[in-house]
């Protein structure tokens, strides 16, 4: 498979949110606006690319029986690096995402891709897989955030679209996360998956 093919595969055919149904916690928890969803997606993508690349490089140095703890340590390392960088250079993002940044460690997407892709492929292909899955995840989160923001607060990327009073606040609150994702995945089932 070509590098581009790997990336596109991650965005559409193996879309982590709509097809693989992985990483649901940040998907629901950080998408109260399009920008929040996008920041979460990009943070996860950074971890995915680095972790996939490094794990693929060192996979032969790790005995099989301890591969999961080793992968988790590598992933946790990158998560902490991303967390420290966000705290230092984008404190506003840190406030919005809060607990969900350290929790990227237990995001099943990251460990899942390490197991199913990086452990079997070369470093460059693995990095491409990280990019593809990362973009797929970011797009899904941004889309979900955009829908919730638009329906709930009448804004898109913080720009007013229609007066706020007409928005249904539920969509910004907890139930809206589940409901919006339900309809989006139903639409994805109907038009793209087949």
């Amino acid at each position: 498979m070509s590098k581009l093919g790997i990336i596109i595969n991650g965005i559409v055919k193996e879309n982590p949110t709509f097809v693989l149904l992985l990483g649901m916690c940040p998907t629901l928890g950080t998408t109260s606006s399009a920008l929040n969803g996008m920041s979460m997606g990009l943070a996860t993508m950074a971890v995915l690319i680095c972790a996939n690349f490094v794990i693929s490089c060192v996979k032969n140095l790790i005995p099989d029986k301890v591969h999961i703890p080793c992968y988790i340590v590598i992933i946790a390392g990158f998560v902490t690096i991303v967390q420290l960088l966000i705290k230092a250079y984008a404190p506003a993002v840190d406030e919005k995402l809060g607990l969900f940044i350290p929790l990227i460690v237990v995001n099943c997407i990251v460990l899942g891709r390490a197991e199913s892709f990086a452990a079997k492929n070369g470093p460059l292909d693995s990095a491409c897989d990280g990019i593809g899955i990362g973009i797929g995840f970011t797009l899904a989160l941004t889309l979900l955030g955009l829908c919730r923001e638009l329906l709930g607060a009448g804004t898109a990327f913080n720009m007013p679209v229609y007066p706020e009073q007409f928005g249904a606040l539920t969509f910004v609150l907890a139930p809206g996360a589940f409901i919006t994702l339900a309809y989006l995945s139903a639409l994805f089932n109907k038009f793209i998956k087949k």
């Binding site: 060192v58 032969n60 140095l61 005995p63 029986k65 301890v66 080793c70 340590v73 590598i74």
Partner: peptide, 20 residues
């Protein structure tokens, strides 16, 4: 791949943790 001896397992996990 490195084999699953106890020495290898402990070494690799420790090395990775120390480097990270």
């Amino acid at each position: 791949k490195l084999e699953n001896s106890l020495k290898n397992m402990v070494l690799s996990l420790t090395a990775i943790t120390v480097i990270v």
